[in-house]
Design a protein around this nucleic acid. Structure first.
Length: 276
DNA sequence: CATCAGGCGAGAC
DNA sequence: GTCTCGCCTGAT
């Protein structure tokens, strides 16, 4: 067990922000806790206010989870830089202040966000769960919880398009099939991508079938931690049009646009729930 | 029954 | 280069 005290960290908000589709994949939500799978490992996290408990060794925390949850970044400082006159963004940041930009697996994010297009979060989770159960390696955690790792490019490349349809992927089946083969045969080098600039990484990712500008931005943000990426989905486009008719100041926030995008997205998606 | 979900590819121009 | 259109599927 590793105990950490941290403000601006909310397991619930991290799960709901949609950036980590595999959170709660195993009915892992126990009282104040969540089970998640990342990098082939299963982790349970519990939270009580600012006290967070990671059910892992100190070494695992230091080498994997500290980075995964972006524990070194000062989110309060980012929120503190928001224009005091921008009441909407301040409200959004306050509402979603526990969200963190995770450092998730690159391959997993590529497939996850190809699936995400023209799709809702519940169905996205279902698709990914089916993919993992069908093509991922089955493992057992130390506490006997069984889980499936995310399938490798090779495993997915061996699935036929018909097999992928059976995972409820719909027309995205062909995209997944072609992308898995492109990665397997190194038409794009995933090893090198983390060293690329944001624009270079985007240009590479756009070579993949099923990856457009929006999906490339999501991959850059959630896997490569490119904080200047600002994915423009339907919610964000609506918010920008309604709340920022004279334009949003992307320049002012160029090094933290990604987390602000998450605040705006999460606020637009969930603020109605707050009043229930 | 229509519309829409964290868009994208293909084809027309 | 920009625009339009069709697309799996399930929830509302």
């Amino acid at each position: 067990m590793v105990w950490v005290t941290k403000e601006h960290f909310s397991i619930t908000q991290i799960c709901m922000s949609g950036q980590c589709f595999r959170m709660n994949p195993l009915e892992g939500e126990k009282a104040g806790g969540v089970g998640l799978v990342a990098f082939g490992k299963y982790l349970e996290v519990f939270q009580n206010g600012n006290e967070i408990c990671f059910d892992c060794t100190q070494e695992e925390y230091d080498t994997i989870w500290k980075s995964y949850f972006d524990m070194e970044t000062d989110y309060a400082a980012i929120i503190g830089r928001i224009d005091a006159a921008d009441s909407y963004l301040l409200s959004a940041a306050s509402f979603g202040s526990g969200i963190r930009i995770l450092r998730q697996d690159l391959w997993e994010m590529i497939i996850s966000f190809i699936i995400s297009q023209q799709n809702n979060i519940r169905r996205i989770r279902k698709c990914i769960r089916l993919l993992c159960e069908k093509y991922g390696e089955k493992r057992t955690a130390q506490n006997v919880v069984e889980y499936y790792d995310f399938p490798t490019p090779k495993a997915l490349s061996e699935a036929s398009i018909e097999d992928l349809y059976a995972c409820n992927l719909g027309y995205r089946s062909r995209y997944i099939h072609e992308t898995a083969n492109a990665v397997l045969y190194q038409e794009i080098d995933l090893e090198q991508l983390p060293t690329c600039s944001y624009s270079d990484a985007c240009r590479e990712l756009l070579k993949l079938c099923g990856v457009g500008a929006k999906v490339a931005d999501c991959i850059c943000l959630f896997a490569l931690h490119k904080m200047e990426a600002f994915p423009k989905d339907t919610h964000i486009k609506k918010v920008l049009a309604q709340q920022y008719p004279n334009g949003f100041s992307f320049e002012r926030y160029s090094d933290c646009g990604g987390i602000l995008q998450q605040y705006l997205f999460f606020y637009d998606l969930n603020k109605k729930m707050k009043n229930k």
